[in-house]
């Protein structure tokens, strides 16, 4: 951990101002990912701006009947929220499928969206990694890639996005509310928030320097049967090999988002359109264009099977 300076921001406006004026500044919220990365010097901020006390921890309904979730709402709190459990059950289920109870107590809504990959080569600073050190190469593509992404990847990077929460957010068409250094506010659909690696795997999202997420907004509830199904190598406290978030309505229409498969929460319109055709068709549409490695090709079959499990769960509830 390199020496760094630390301030506790007094207001959102001050936080973004100082983030854009101080070289190498980063925001810190729960710190469940950033502090680990700092100890390994994968992240080396010169300055930390603590945003834990800015009142960004509220959950409130919007004028449009949706839900605005403050950036600093902890995962535990969000998963337990009565409205979330009733109207956005898939989000609650995705949250409790992630990490451990202790981590969820600390981890925040915005921080979860920004968490970085679990590619093992990203974590070892002696190894080449285009995400960690642009241009150094990718050790993972021909290495131990079993857990890594099969679609949306590039020749530069096959790192997967590790979040469960973000998969549900993607399914629910959330938007990410952002404030810039000049105080200007904008909202980015979550579909556009996470970026695919292309030639620049170190650029992972649409945030511009100094910008701060203030909240995540969910549109009004869509009803239906909510399912989150996560498949991993042990029963708890492990990242997804494959996860599926799904909402089905009464007439068999559905929507699907996937975790563990791609550099971002993965959702494809054609997969939603295939809902009535069943799990294999949805999987085929979702993974059209996949480029797996020999070690992670099983994720394609596992996706179809996880979807089969999801369809089975839906039938059981219907």
């Amino acid at each position: 951990m390199k020496p760094f300076t630390y301030t506790r921001a007094a207001s959102v406006e001050e936080a973004v101002r100082s983030a854009s004026s101080v070289q190498g500044a980063r925001f810190i919220a729960g710190g469940t990912n950033l502090l680990d990365l700092m100890k390994l010097q994968i992240e080396t901020p010169a300055h930390l701006i603590d945003i834990n006390h800015l009142g960004l921890d509220r959950i409130e309904t919007t004028a449009g009947g949706g839900l605005r979730i403050g950036a600093l709402v902890r995962n535990t709190e969000l998963a337990a929220d009565r409205t979330v459990r009733r109207d956005y059950a898939v989000l609650s289920r995705a949250l409790v499928a992630g990490a451990s109870g202790q981590l969820r107590n600390k981890a925040t809504t915005a921080g979860n969206l920004l968490q970085r990959t679990r590619c093992p080569y990203f974590y070892d600073t002696r190894m080449p990694c285009n995400k960690r050190r642009p241009g150094s190469g990718c050790a993972a593509i021909k290495g131990m890639s079993r857990s890594l992404a099969v679609i949306g990847t590039s020749d530069a990077c096959i790192a997967q996005h590790p979040s469960d929460m973000a998969v549900a957010m993607r399914l629910l068409d959330a938007s990410v509310d952002i404030i810039g250094a000049d105080g200007a506010r904008r909202s980015v659909p979550i579909a556009d928030f996470h970026l695919l690696p292309g030639d620049t795997p170190h650029i992972e999202n649409a945030l511009k320097p100094g910008e701060l997420i203030t909240s995540v907004t969910l549109p009004k509830p869509i009803g239906g049967t909510h399912v989150y199904r996560k498949v991993r190598d042990r029963a708890s406290y492990a990242f997804a090999l494959v996860s599926v978030a799904a909402v089905f309505d009464r007439d068999g229409q559905g929507r699907f988002a996937f975790g563990g498969l791609a550099p971002k929460p993965w959702r494809v319109a054609a997969a939603d359109a295939a809902a009535r055709s069943g799990a294999p068709a949805v999987a085929e549409a979702a993974l059209d264009g996949a480029r797996p490695t020999p070690l992670n090709a099983f994720k394609q079959q596992l996706t179809a099977r996880t979807l089969a499990s999801v369809f089975r769960q839906r039938e059981a509830r219907a």
Partner: peptide, 8 residues
């Protein structure tokens, strides 16, 4: 990344 059983 090196998994051992958890309580669950």
């Amino acid at each position: 990344e090196y998994l051992v059983p958890v309580h669950a």
